[in-house]
């Protein structure tokens, strides 16, 4: 599971190694990636909202 989260974070940054990609596609099933992706997206949104409300003061 931690593998998938790491890959999704790498995706958000837009950088990934080739053999990590092969490993991900090899055994990871797409639904897990999509789900974690959406969850991480929501976490990112929450983070930005937090930073924005702090900055707004």
């Amino acid at each position: 599971m931690w593998e998938v989260v790491k890959s999704v974070l790498a995706a958000f940054l837009g950088v990934q190694r080739e053999q990590q990609r092969l490993k991900d596609f090899e055994k990871g099933n797409p639904v897990a990636f999509i789900a974690v992706g959406i969850v991480m997206g929501a976490v990112l949104v929450g983070l930005i909202v937090l930073v924005a409300s702090l900055a707004a003061g």
Partner: peptide
């Protein structure tokens, strides 16, 4: 065709 460190830097 791949150099992740360069990619990380330019991101």
């Amino acid at each position: 065709h791949e150099n992740t460190t360069v990619e990380v830097i330019w991101t």
